[in-house]
Design a protein around this nucleic acid. Structure first.
Lengths: 227, 227, 227, 227
DNA sequence: AATGAATGAGATTTCATTCAT
DNA sequence: GATGAATGAAATCTCATTCAT
């Protein structure tokens, strides 16, 4: 065997390693700035600076600000759903347990992290980037609704849950998580929120509310005009 | 009596009437554009155009884009809370009924309307406008939390509700409303949502979940690290 | 004689009087603002406001900002020279006396007043308004130089003054007056200047310096390059 | 030793050389335009164009038009006074000689050059830029008056000059220099002025006028009102 | 005659993107 | 590959001027 300059094989030289890491560094920098200031108000140069490179370098890796944003979104919202699906397929216990598990996990792995802030950005500025909006819709919103919808339905069929309207219930389940995400990433986290406590409370309320053997809410609603 | 040309007295001339209406027209135009595209991505000239005036005219009424935004926010978020307070002070029935009433009303009068969209914008871009963030915090967030917190507490003291952690419960109650607002104003309202049905479902679930005489949720949560 | 509505003949009604006074009021307002802020930095609306009328009214009397400026300049620089000319024609005493008289008068009637400030403006921004520059040159600069030049020459011919180079001496005579005007109207009159004392000193120095029977200054000048 | 392509070491690349030169190029362009048109009437884009760069480039080097102006002023008015001070400290000859030397030098090194035009601009528009006005007052006007005042006083104490009022005499001395500067930079240098001849004449007149052993001016002044 | 709401050309300034080094 | 100087389109805001009332 001949001695090479780089003793260990398959380990790229430092320069190379830097280079390979660049896209990730850029996406991380972009993510944090987008969350802080919004997409439109974030300057390409600031992203580059936070990633420790120069303005020009950003364009070696991404065609522009919009492409960078898409890459960030893709990175953070792709694999998350599939986890959930797998979990549900394997799950053998009660739906209540599964729901607890899913929500807790989702919060820990996704909502609580950077993706939580991204959600805010996508919701606020997605309309200006139609390609991105479609992506988010297809990859995040729809699968989530389908997953939770299926869960609720299974619970109803098995008699574990009362007969509730499914899409609406899903909507209600997601709401507090959204609220948590926004609380952590908006207006300088003004209200100190104890996320685990909120989650616990939410599950407590929801599961109690969903429990079969109960009559429906005692207060019939009356809407003014649009029924 | 002789008929004069101008039949009604004290009617300002057309020019004056236009002038008086301008600020409102501008705020309306600004509101819809801010909600559509976000604050940063909305051009002052577009606001003027949508209001049917030219660029320069906007500046006759508002000192700049930021002042315009503040005016819009103030317009849509001011008096709403005080309604709620008054309602609670007068209310003689159960807290369940009051909660239903408050949430339904709030949705109809505020969330469902333009202010729903504004919420999104403020949450997404408020960090860049500190004065505005403070305003929103003081005028909207804090009063809302206090109002609902007081309601929950009264319910608990009277035995109507279980002993639940108050701030967390408030957080959970607000979540689905937030979700509704974002659904209507983001990503082109892709998922058709039946807001009244969601509200009904939410109240159904929540009130059932809050009802006293129940043991707490059967599923104990386990959080990975941060307890 | 028939009784008329307005009892006194040839006195226009109040409304009329206002109207006749307008151009003057506008020129006065313009003058003071031009001197304060410069021509370019003065807004037409501010001129109108200081004159106590509205923006539109200005344009009833002057075709625009530039025409207004010309009118102001014409007003303040026209008749001043002819005074001087007449004075010189009539004068029978020494040229020293005449020089004292002319400078003192000019300072009192022109330099010290608003025209002093105007000079600054014309010198600073006249280049951008060629018509005005020509006017000032023809009506102010040239006549002044000719008048003072003739005075000096008469003094030399009569033996009252030494043989000094005429145009240069005129330049020197004018300098301190210019300095006085700028001192009063620039940089917020920072250095408190006692104008009469300066004038007295100037005349004292100059007349002593001009007196015949003296040898020229003892210090021969040497200029570096351009002889 | 092998000859390399780039013969001289430590020569920055062309790009760098351009960069280093830019601020100077911009200040030069700004100076000439400010003098030509005044500060307010000069457009930032024209400055950039005259410097051979685009609008945006200007802002890479200066934060705005006002900062650019300040930089220009600082560049041209800083070290000039200190020269004069040093000269006076060292000088051993007569005050007449020193005065000749100072004025001639000042004209050659400062007044005659670009700074002469700047003076006009600062006097005309300094009021709108208070920071700048202060700078000019502190760095130019006050030191000049102090320097010349000290000179005159020394001359009086040594018996070389008559007893003249000091600040007023300084004012008179400065006047013609100011006039020279304005002549060269205003109204398109209409009157051809022979600056060295004017200076010579000024010094001739002044020094004669200051000479001791003379009685004061024969013509007593009478001011109309304000004594 | 007088007003002042409205206009839009034009000024300053910012920033995504390019490209010579 | 990396840089950062340079660009110029586009955004915000100003103000001379017009014109309906």
């Amino acid at each position: 065997m001949r001695a090479t300059k780089t003793s260990t094989p398959n380990v790229p030289p430092a320069r190379q390693r830097r280079k390979d890491a660049r896209p990730q560094e850029l996406r991380d920098a972009a993510l944090s700035l987008f969350v802080e200031k919004g997409y439109a108000a974030t300057r390409a140069e600031d992203v580059a600076a936070r990633a420790g490179v120069s303005k020009g370098t950003l364009y070696l890796y991404y065609a522009g600000k919009e492409e960078l944003f898409q890459a960030v979104v893709r990175e953070h919202f792709s694999a998350t759903i599939h986890d959930g699906m797998a979990l549900m397929d394997e799950h053998r216990g009660s739906m209540s347990e599964l729901l607890s598990l899913l929500m807790t996990r989702w919060w820990e792995r996704v909502g609580q992290g950077p993706a939580g802030g991204l959600t805010k950005v996508v919701l606020a500025e997605g309309r200006n980037l139609p390609e991105l909006a479609q992506l988010y819709l297809d990859e995040v919103i729809r699968p989530t609704h389908e997953l939770l919808g299926a869960l609720i339905e299974r619970g109803i069929r098995s008699g574990e849950f009362r007969a509730v309207p499914v899409p609406e219930t899903v909507h209600v389940l997601i709401g507090p998580l959204l609220h948590l995400m926004l609380s952590e990433h908006s207006l300088g986290h003004c209200l100190a929120v104890d996320a685990p406590a909120v989650l616990r409370t939410q599950l407590d309320l929801m599961l109690n509310g969903l429990k079969s053997g109960l009559k429906s809410s005692a207060v019939p609603l009356k809407f003014s005009k649009k029924p």
